[in-house]
Simulated assay, not measured.
Amino acid sequence: MSSFGKDGTLLLLVIALCGCATPRASVQPGLDCQERGEYQKAYEYFQNLARQHPRQLELQTYVDTARGLAFRQAAGQAQKALQRGDLEGFLQGMKQANAIQPGEKVQAVIQLVEAARLKGNTDAEIREELSRSMRAGERQSLQQALQETAEIIGRQMLDGRIGSPMAVLNFTLEGAAARESAAAYFENALSEALLGNRIAIVERKRMGEVMKEIALAGTGLGESGQMVQAGQLTGALSVAAGNVYLSESGGKYQVRVIDVETGQVVWQESRDFMPGKDMLWLGR
């Protein structure tokens, strides 16, 4: 083969490989927008980037994360407008949020305001009706709460603060009759939320087997140490664990993310939720 042929083949290979990866420079402008709190701009940027590079599937993670941030920002601005008594600002903010991420609840609020205006209700009457409606639906379902938790974890992974893949294990239940099955139900629900946000997780069955092996080996490690060792043996870079508390009036969960390399807690949060239909499976 001629020198040109070898060099030409190598050049084509390099070009092909470069075309398969997302250059860091291409996503940086969007990340810069997020850093400045310009979430709508970041969402639009990542959307356009994903359209330009449809084969680079990893870009969808950036789109999904930016969409969630932009939605919450728009909804938050709408809420602030309502608190100021600016009903029109609230309505426009909710319409913007719905354009970013359509949803039944947001659409219902928009319809409530527009229908009340058609009836001739005053802004004060509409604001009072909105307040009653929001107070009635303040607490999230378990799935809604876990979805937001998963979105935050996804952002932390994109920023390099949490390692991927992640292992989910060792949630303890307080206030549940069948604690082991209730814990498994919660861990499955969290795993589904993470997978729904395109977060790579270690197969739970494999993690369970490794944890049993570690326990039988009698390593003398504490619970945290066992989780770190399990992560190391399965290739996980981070481990999610925590507690779930149930009562007659609702529930609360705490999530801790442990870095497998350092054994340190790198992120944690607590959320309240309304168990609803999940109460049966959680064993209350």
Score class of each variant (00 low, 15 high):
residue 46 F to M: 03
residue 25 A to C: 04
residue 24 R to G: 08
residue 55 R to D: 13
residue 61 T to L: 08
residue 74 A to Q: 02
residue 56 Q to V: 09
residue 63 V to H: 03
residue 70 A to D: 05
residue 32 D to N: 15
residue 58 E to R: 15
residue 66 A to M: 05
residue 23 P to D: 09
residue 63 V to I: 04
residue 56 Q to D: 09
residue 24 R to W: 06
residue 87 L to T: 11
residue 44 E to S: 08
residue 50 A to P: 00
residue 78 A to R: 01
residue 88 E to L: 12
residue 74 A to D: 04
residue 62 Y to R: 08
residue 42 A to W: 04
residue 56 Q to I: 09
residue 64 D to T: 11
residue 82 L to P: 00
residue 84 R to E: 14
residue 33 C to H: 15
residue 37 G to N: 11
residue 68 G to E: 02
residue 83 Q to C: 07
residue 42 A to S: 13
residue 41 K to H: 11
residue 76 G to T: 00
residue 68 G to R: 03
residue 56 Q to H: 11
residue 41 K to T: 15
residue 64 D to V: 09
residue 59 L to Y: 01
residue 45 Y to A: 02
residue 42 A to T: 00
residue 75 A to V: 11
residue 27 V to W: 01
residue 30 G to E: 00
residue 54 P to L: 10
residue 80 K to L: 14
residue 24 R to H: 06
residue 50 A to M: 07
residue 54 P to Y: 07
residue 45 Y to V: 02
residue 68 G to W: 02
residue 50 A to I: 06
residue 44 E to G: 04
residue 46 F to L: 08
residue 33 C to D: 14
residue 35 E to Q: 15
residue 38 E to N: 15
residue 39 Y to E: 07
residue 81 A to N: 06
residue 82 L to R: 08
residue 24 R to L: 14
residue 48 N to A: 13
residue 46 F to H: 06
residue 83 Q to Y: 09
residue 71 F to M: 13
residue 59 L to K: 00
residue 74 A to H: 01
residue 82 L to V: 07
residue 24 R to K: 13
residue 65 T to H: 06
residue 56 Q to P: 02
residue 42 A to E: 06
residue 57 L to H: 12
residue 30 G to L: 00
residue 36 R to G: 04
residue 44 E to C: 06
residue 55 R to N: 14
residue 66 A to C: 02
residue 70 A to R: 03
residue 42 A to M: 06
residue 68 G to S: 01
residue 36 R to P: 05
residue 27 V to P: 01
residue 35 E to V: 11
residue 59 L to V: 05
residue 26 S to M: 10
residue 31 L to M: 15
residue 83 Q to H: 09
residue 35 E to M: 14
residue 42 A to F: 03
residue 85 G to A: 07
residue 46 F to D: 00
residue 45 Y to T: 01
residue 32 D to H: 10
residue 57 L to I: 13
residue 68 G to Y: 02
residue 48 N to P: 04
residue 66 A to L: 05
residue 44 E to N: 09
residue 41 K to E: 15
residue 75 A to G: 06
residue 68 G to M: 02
residue 53 H to G: 00
residue 87 L to Y: 05
residue 88 E to S: 14
residue 43 Y to C: 05
residue 70 A to W: 02
residue 41 K to S: 14
residue 29 P to E: 11
residue 40 Q to H: 05
residue 87 L to D: 03
residue 59 L to G: 02
residue 26 S to F: 07
residue 65 T to A: 12
residue 36 R to A: 13
residue 88 E to K: 13
residue 70 A to L: 02
residue 86 D to Q: 04
residue 76 G to K: 03
residue 51 R to M: 14
residue 81 A to V: 12
residue 60 Q to D: 06
residue 65 T to N: 10
residue 38 E to C: 10
residue 80 K to I: 14
residue 48 N to L: 11
residue 58 E to H: 15
residue 64 D to N: 12
residue 39 Y to L: 03
residue 47 Q to V: 13
residue 69 L to F: 09
residue 62 Y to C: 02
residue 62 Y to M: 06
residue 72 R to D: 06
residue 30 G to S: 01
residue 42 A to Y: 01
residue 53 H to M: 11
residue 31 L to N: 08
residue 77 Q to V: 01
residue 28 Q to A: 14
residue 62 Y to L: 07
residue 54 P to T: 08
residue 78 A to P: 03
residue 69 L to S: 07
